[in-house]
Simulated assay, not measured.
Amino acid sequence: MRKIGYILLFAMGCYIITACNSGKAEVQETVEKMQSSAITVPFERMECWASDSTLKESPWNKAKLKLVHYVDSATCSSCYLQKVAINKLLFNMETLSDNEFYNIFIINPDNKTKNKLKSKYLERLIPQTIFVDSTNVFIEANPNIPPESMYHTFLLDESNKVVLVGNPMLNKQIEAMMLSIVEKKLGRKLGES
């Protein structure tokens, strides 16, 4: 009876290891698919919440590196944006890089959520540049972006190619990798988190 138990545990362990390995392979395949073509950010087809001076400057167009935060309707937009608003690293990187690094926030809210977000925006409780994608133009332009939210934060290079996938607010390793990539590409140190 004990042998059967060990064989069963061994078989379950092999299954778990195989499942984990196939999961890693699947993630790697998904990231490679995202990296296979440039990401299109149709700024002009989305509503932009920003100050007049920011709109006039359009720093997102001039940035060499962009950290895209896509928040679809399945995610709590308000929660995500409030969490980002208190993350000093992401906004310090914009300032320290003279906007050569820029955060691009794209939200896809329903009308009720959009109205709540607008009031939080006006109260300055969330980031001060937000693109509102009410018509799904971002995802339609980028079929390589999967529906799972773990793939919805990614770093784009100067050619709008994905160079890193993952959320630096949720993972210190991703944060360190992002900072390293940005500093290497810009050729200067931006500081520590």
Rank of each mutant, 00 (worst) to 15 (best):
M1D: 09
L9S: 13
G13A: 07
T18Q: 12
N21A: 12
Q28G: 08
K33P: 10
Q35H: 11
S36H: 14
S37L: 11
A38I: 06
I39K: 00
F43K: 06
E44L: 03
M46A: 06
E47Q: 03
C48M: 13
W49A: 01
L55T: 05
L55I: 05
E57Y: 04
E57I: 10
W60N: 02
N61A: 11
K62P: 10
C76M: 09
C76H: 09
Y80S: 01
Q82K: 00
L89Q: 14
L89M: 15
L90K: 05
F91S: 06
E94G: 08
T95K: 13
T95Y: 12
D98H: 11
F101W: 01
Y102T: 07
I104G: 04
I107E: 02
N108I: 03
N108F: 04
N111E: 15
K112N: 12
N115P: 04
Y121P: 00
L122S: 09
E123Q: 03
I126T: 01
Q128D: 12
Q128R: 05
I130C: 01
F131W: 12
V132H: 07
D133G: 03
V137D: 08
V137E: 09
F138G: 02
I139N: 00
I139Q: 02
A141Y: 10
N142L: 10
P146K: 04
P147G: 07
E148W: 14
Y151K: 01
H152R: 04
L155N: 01
D157M: 01
E158V: 04
K161P: 06
L164C: 05
G166R: 02
N167Q: 09
N167S: 10
P168S: 05
P168L: 03
M169S: 01
M169V: 00
M169D: 03
K172D: 12
Q173G: 06
I174Y: 08
A176I: 15
K184M: 11
G187R: 10
K189W: 14
G191W: 15
S193N: 12
